[in-house]
């Protein structure tokens, strides 16, 4: 059984459920604990929806590549898209201490990913955004 998975999807939100199904099947096959599956699902959902909603300056079809590789203690996740340059590590942190009336609806997704991943790195390469993440396997 291969320890890596590569999926390429179109830039539509309807691509997400089949992607999640494929990823979860792969993680289940490798008996990855449910806590880690949760974190991988969260990272993929938040980043991919962000790319689909805000990543492009045109209405053309694009592809997003999701690569997963399993290591003894970590799951390595790589996301690649050809949208405009966007470094999620530079997006402002939401103020999570504001009272209900002042809380903005939205802006939490990247915060959740930054807090649940062990390590995140961004680079722009040959016109593509490449986000690399290490997520704890246990």
């Amino acid at each position: 059984m291969s320890d890596s998975l590569s999926q390429t999807i179109g830039n539509t939100l309807t691509s997400l459920p089949p992607l999640t199904t494929a990823v979860n099947r792969f993680l289940d096959q490798h008996t990855v604990p449910s806590e880690a599956i949760f974190r991988v699902n969260l990272a993929i959902e938040e980043i991919v929806t962000n790319i689909i909603k805000y990543g492009y300056d045109d209405t053309a079809d694009h592809t997003i590549t999701v690569n997963l590789a399993l290591f003894p203690n970590t799951i390595h996740l790589q996301l690649k898209d050809d949208g405009h340059p966007f470094d999620p590590l530079q997006s402002p942190e939401p103020d999570i201490h504001l009272p209900l009336a002042k809380r903005k609806i939205g802006g939490l997704g990247l915060h959740l990913v930054r807090e649940t991943a062990n390590h995140i790195a961004y680079r722009r390469e040959n016109g593509a955004n490449i986000l690399e993440m290490d997520i704890a396997r246990q």
Partner: peptide
């Protein structure tokens, strides 16, 4: 409920605001 993302948090937040 075994999974929630920011899309789900958004639902709780907007319900709380509406009810308030």
């Amino acid at each position: 409920l075994d999974y929630v993302s920011s899309a789900g948090l958004r639902v709780f937040l907007s319900a709380a605001k509406r009810l308030k």
